[in-house]
Design a protein around this nucleic acid. Structure first.
Lengths: 215, 215
DNA sequence: CTGCGCCCTATTGTATACAATTTGCCCACG
DNA sequence: CGTGGGCAAATTGTATACAATAGGGCGCAG
């Protein structure tokens, strides 16, 4: 996908992640073409990708809607991520170069810094968090695993809810990363998997609690 | 995807699974349009789907090639299936209706029958096997899980190699299914997961042995 | 007033022409 | 003989017009 198609993908994704469209709302290819400034052809490409990531869904007659995930759906998403990223962490423990581990440490220090700001810079936190996890997924050196994990992308509701996380929650998350780095330095597959597992499972509960509190 | 797009997908997939194109071979959209009898537009849709299933890959300049999987790649595929289908089996154990379990038994009896023919009907075996696993995936009632699993589809080389499986290997596979059905009837999640795990891991070794023998 | 069917409109699907990019070749030049 | 530049051909990307299909509303009959 070159310029137009890639641009459409990026713009629509941002549009969805920012929460500009309500879950369940219908979108049309024409609308999206107008928003992105390209024709329907590349928009259709972008929509296919976003469908695969399940940010968009189609009804029985191919119309396009903004995905609407229940709490159970999100639970299931974290469970799948736990399995797959746990596996990725195991493989990464065998494969990460020292430089890559240093890079993880560097990213995580930025993440700590974002938390320590007043107020905490949650957007920065989420960005660095994504990079951190991507480095691990990449190091797992499994094309299928990577492809599958890109589909289990953060949902708008999760990103939105993250803005109300407590500083303590964010700090704990960064500490998890520290421990993950320690596991990698020790080349301990099982440790890495276990930390990743509890990291993601706690993340789910943090989300669920914040989500309930918001109601 | 309606007629043309769906038709293109089906024909190209069959084309690949039958092994009509060699791994690593380049294909062009025009060629595929000619083969499928539709224009490039729906072909491009179909190619996107087959890319997601990793039956096709693109090089750095977007040209299309038949995927070529190493033994390690296939090992990794079975490992991912083991995790995900193991999880699916757990969920299915809680959710399968009695009728669905009966249907599994019915499908598996056809599978036994296909094995008992002389010579064994391997194509029929593989078809019924796929249906069997799909029923379980469906019963897991997790859209993401289902979507992810459809990507971990059988590779041409696996289907091709299956033709040289011994009758005993095929029988063992059908027996695994019998045990899985027993686990479902007992509503025993752990049992179901364990059987699914060993079933798929053995399937990998059966493949790997047959594959080596062929060399 | 209600239910059914038809038609018009909204929306997605397909074909095709053209644009952009990439590849590979050929030839000039060192 | 090798190497690099540039041109032509092959291939993918985009726009647009038209086709097919689904949905919603309106009128008519009961």
């Amino acid at each position: 996908m070159t310029r137009a198609s890639e641009q459409a993908y990026g713009k629509i994704r941002e549009f969805l992640l920012r929460g500009d469209a309500k879950p369940g709302e219908q979108l049309t290819e024409d609308q999206l073409a107008h928003i992105t400034g390209v024709s329907r052809t590349p928009v259709r490409d972008a929509v296919r990708r976003l469908e695969a990531e399940m940010l968009l869904i189609r009804n029985e007659s191919k119309r396009i809607f903004v995905a609407d995930w229940s709490r159970d759906d999100i639970d299931e998403m974290f469970t799948l991520r736990e399995m797959l990223e746990g596996h990725a962490a195991e493989r990464a423990a065998d494969r990460l170069s020292e430089q890559q581990i240093d890079r993880l440490a560097e990213v995580n220090s930025k993440l700590h810094a974002a938390v320590d700001m007043d107020p905490p810079n949650v957007v920065e936190f989420l960005d660095e968090n994504r990079v951190f996890h991507e480095i691990i997924t990449e190091a797992a050196a499994s094309p299928r695993l990577r492809q599958v994990l890109t589909m289990l992308v953060e949902q708008p509701v999760v990103l939105h809810t993250a803005r109300s996380y407590s500083v303590e929650d964010l700090k704990q998350s960064a500490r998890d990363h520290d421990e993950l780095i320690a596991a990698f330095r020790a080349r301990d597959r099982s440790w890495a998997r276990a930390v990743m597992g509890s990291h993601l499972r706690r993340a789910f509960h943090t989300f669920a609690d914040a989500s309930e509190a918001a109601e």
